[in-house]
Design a protein around this nucleic acid. Structure first.
Lengths: 251, 251
DNA sequence: GCATCGGGTTGATTTAGGTCAAGGCTCGCG
DNA sequence: CGCGAGCCTTGACCTAAATCAACCCGATGC
């Protein structure tokens, strides 16, 4: 099962600044003049950990991408049950062209910097420059694959498998960015509270805590503090995750 | 929470044949010469109920859309646990441009006709005619929304709520196509076996059966045979589904 | 120094849904 | 006509995870 696109996009545009929307997220193959037009409507926004960026149903007149930090998309039922439906790491895109209200709560789970564009100009740009739309399609298809992997997790995995999967997912995303892996031994800092993990996994936070303890007791993971995890044998973790495929290299 | 795009696409192209990929799925706003080019690579395929169209990991050199019948996308774990991750009704698109192997099992759950295009020419067409790509982006975004609604269902809803939600989803898709609704009273034919429902909902088929019986006893639904359901009060069903939003008009 | 608070752990108990098992209904076929 | 296969239902029992509750630990504030 292949999760990544056949031909991975190369980010060769060298005049990029620090804004991922230019060099990673959207404008991977864009031309200089398009960059300039995009640039004109660009602005940055910072949020503190815990802050809600938009509430479900609110007007949302921008799109953007995460520069640093982590955000989540969450759905809430009337009685307060919550399910995370999106985990946004740096370079991930937020917002849907063609929709003017947010469909989910968007929350900063760590301190966060986003790079935003007003929606109108962005949509106009999309019409004028097909590359942007094509890149967005690729990203959306990747997200859809991730969502489907997530559905398997939610529908069929045990609590232990869910925890192992989540750690693996974060480790892989981390590793693919930072390459902190050395022959099977992997180190991760969980960027989520136990509660956020429980919302990701469709569990209670007590169960999350218990299963993390269980994995520690069984030597699958080692823990320092609350969040710092080292995985002595990554393949063993993957076994615990019960993944059929390569586990989805995309979150 | 808004599930449909702000400006719903209008299907005004009148020379359409019976192929949904032309008039509904992809070429909503296309020009005649594009249609012609697409037409050249088009072919139909029929499948019987229960037949597997592609296996996860198999080479898949076509994309297409469902004309009549129902297909599903399913993921399987090594030990046989299965989770449905896509339900494809007429006009839904199958396949991912840019990927040459299938990521999921695609199964015909009823007799099925698909309209297919060889992938290469389709991809070339996509590059040449932005409208096709844009339409595909819209469809993919809709699917992503549906997947996220589905995640809430899998992660947080009770068995009873899951069943009620599924019936509501099918009824709405049905109704939006066939308009067989009369003041709150709705009639649906479930196009899925109990087993398929259980794979959709992350339950066992026994639980599905029990909860359907429970909803019948409580007068939420009435059943004739195994599959024919009438919903005397649709709003009451929605209450049982525990939906926060409008419930996602998209499957 | 002490109180408080957010995040985390652990234990005791309950329960929703899974598992195992028996049987029913319908349809096609020898 | 009787038989078996699919599909579905129902019952008895079991277990994984939820619930309820106590408590730990480190940071922050007064």
């Amino acid at each position: 099962m292949q999760k990544t696109s056949a031909a991975p996009v190369k980010f060769t545009h060298v005049q990029c600044g620090d804004c991922p929307i230019r060099h990673r997220a959207v404008c991977a193959r864009c031309e200089t003049d398009e960059l300039v037009r995009l640039e004109e409507t660009k602005y940055y926004r910072s949020f503190e950990a815990g802050q809600t960026i938009v509430w479900s149903g609110d007007r949302m007149d921008f799109v953007g991408s995460v520069v640093t930090g982590i955000a989540t998309l969450t759905q809430t039922m009337e009685d307060g049950r919550r399910q995370m439906v999106g985990l946004l790491l740096p370079s991930d895109f937020v917002g849907r062209p063609g929709r003017e209200t947010a469909a989910y709560d968007v929350v900063a789970t760590t301190d966060l910097v986003m790079c935003c564009f007003r929606k109108k100009p962005f949509e106009e740009l999309m019409v004028q420059t097909p590359h942007v739309g094509q890149r967005l399609l690729e990203m959306t298809l990747d997200e859809l694959d991730a969502a489907r992997e997530w559905m398997l997790l939610l529908g069929r995995k045990t609590a232990r498998e869910k925890i192992a999967s989540l750690i693996a997912i974060i480790a892989r995303r981390d590793a693919s960015l930072k390459m902190q892996k050395s022959e099977g031994r992997v180190i991760v800092d969980l960027p989520l509270t136990r509660e956020a993990m429980s919302e990701y996994l469709g569990l209670t936070l007590e169960t999350v805590s218990r299963q993390i303890s269980a994995l520690r007791k069984d030597g699958i993971i080692e823990i320092e503090g609350k969040r710092h995890i080292t995985i002595p044998d990554f393949d063993r973790l993957i076994e615990e995750a019960g993944d059929d495929s390569d586990g989805g290299f995309l979150v």
